[in-house]
């Protein structure tokens, strides 16, 4: 009961949706739209679980005065503050305070976190691009060439640009295809294993 019904459900919906792809007729299209809709609606209920999880973790930390519990207070307060502002009938998503917080607090932090990548990409290149072996030398040279494209190099600029574009165009395409073919196969294999119930590690034993 605990294990058989889920497996049956997985099988039924898996097979139905896999077959649906080949059937263009109207009922089949309708069914497809319905199922996509259903997933969204189930997502609403899952969101309740998400909120619950967050409150649970935060409450536990605050209650037990765990390390850094004060920051959990910050998270809880800002979360409930946003929810209060965003759900209040006076403004919702378009409310002034709601928008002010979003554009003046949320967006600057977001852009700054993204900008951390500038530093990280530098430290990662410094650490990893070393000519340790033939393979890592290839990685290094390719990266260097592409970085050189940005720098005005006078007469060298054109050949570097061409080689760089060629690398982005040709070997890139070959590698991307090889990876995608593998991904396609792997994805189908994973889906098939799940639909057929061969892979059931995600469901456990009992």
């Amino acid at each position: 009961m605990k294990r058989q019904i889920p497996l049956v459900l997985v099988f039924i919906f898996g097979v139905l949706l896999a077959i649906q792809y080949f059937i263009p007729s109207e009922p089949s299209q309708k069914g497809y739209e319905f199922v996509l809709d259903w997933i969204t609606i189930i997502g609403i209920f899952a969101m309740v679980l998400g909120i619950w999880s967050q409150i649970h973790v935060g409450y536990y930390k605050i209650r037990h005065r765990a390390e850094d519990w004060k920051y959990s207070v910050v998270t809880m307060v800002s979360m409930f503050g946003m929810i209060f502002l965003g759900l209040s009938p006076f403004g919702g998503l378009q409310g002034t305070t709601f928008r002010l917080i979003y554009t003046n607090i949320f967006i600057p932090i977001q852009a700054t976190i993204f900008a951390l990548l500038a530093f990280y990409i530098a430290s990662a290149s410094y650490r990893a691009f070393r000519a340790r072996s033939a393979v890592s030398t290839v990685l290094l040279v390719a990266a260097l060439l592409l970085m050189l494209r940005v720098i005005p190099m006078g007469p060298l600029a054109d050949p570097i640009n061409k080689i760089g574009s060629w690398m982005l165009l040709v070997p890139n395409l070959a590698a991307k295809r090889a990876i995608l073919i593998g991904v396609g196969l792997g994805g189908v294999a994973t889906a098939l294993k799940i639909v057929l119930g061969i892979e059931r590690s995600y469901l456990g034993k009992d």
Binding site: I179, G186, A189, T190
Partner: peptide, 10 residues
């Protein structure tokens, strides 16, 4: 794990 290797991992 590159691409397909992710799917093979399990």
């Amino acid at each position: 794990l590159l691409g397909e290797e992710l799917y093979a991992a399990s």
